[in-house]
């Protein structure tokens, strides 16, 4: 049985053979800071705009993932990636630095899990041998995209959440050592009517909670 309800099972055991993460200065202070390969002291990442910084983080995360897997660019068959900006522009611009094909994914906060799932499906089915799944976001660019300009002097409500400044990637391969991906559950859109732009966690939580495997 390959599929049961919304869950798919991978018989050929695709594995996460390497991964890399980059995070910003605020994330560095938090609990995930110690797990990142590169932490930024400067959220601009020596670029002129936050969008370029986001793109650079994503590019470096992808390169580092391939490097940590002891592979070369030519060994990668496909890149699945996305971000939070219009036309998933950071991911598209990051992809132009590479010679392998790129499939854009947009799924807001679940972009990473969706790209891992799709990569695992492709590897499991045997269409590709190695796929890179990656995503990135930047607090400042997301804030501008969805909410107010950074310099606007308004008080953030206490339930306001912060978009992560960071990027991550993982390499999914049909062979090698690493975490085996055994199954994946596809989510469905679940709208309970939360309209608070500052509290997207509450809007997304039901989709995670009422998953039907």
């Amino acid at each position: 049985m390959m599929k049961k309800g919304n869950t798919v099972f991978f018989k050929n055991s695709p594995r996460i053979v390497s991964f890399a993460a980059i995070c910003g200065s605020k994330e560095k202070e938090g609990i995930i800071g110690e797990y990142a390969d590169i932490t930024l002291d400067d959220d601009m990442y020596s670029e002129s705009t936050f969008e370029k910084a986001e793109c650079k983080m994503l590019t470096n995360a992808i390169s580092l993932t391939i490097e940590k897997g002891k592979l070369k660019e030519k060994d990668i068959d496909v890149l699945l990636s996305g971000d939070l900006l219009n036309q998933i522009i950071s991911a598209s611009f990051a992809a132009r630095d590479y010679n392998f094909p790129f499939l854009g994914v947009y799924s807001a906060c679940s972009t990473m899990s969706e790209s891992i799932m799709l990569a695992a499906m492709m590897v499991n089915a045997g269409y590709v041998n190695r796929a890179v799944a990656a995503t990135g976001s930047h607090f400042a660019s997301a804030e501008r995209q969805y909410r107010y300009p950074l310099e606007l002097g308004c008080t953030r409500p206490p339930q306001a959440q912060w978009t992560v400044t960071g990027a991550g990637g993982c390499l999914i391969s049909s062979s090698g050592d690493g975490i085996k991906i055994t199954s994946a559950t596809m989510g469905r859109v679940c709208d309970y009517g939360v309209t608070d732009v500052n509290n997207m966690g509450a809007a997304m939580a039901p989709a995670g909670a009422i998953i039907t495997p």
Binding site: P157, P158, Q159, Y192, G193, V194, N199
Partner: peptide, 22 residues
């Protein structure tokens, strides 16, 4: 967006979990 989508129980629960505005 339809009114039927709204889950009043959940929206009320979210309200109780939000840190109160001072």
């Amino acid at each position: 967006k339809t009114k039927e989508n709204n889950n009043e129980n959940y929206l009320n629960y979210v309200k109780t979990q939000d840190p109160p505005t001072q």
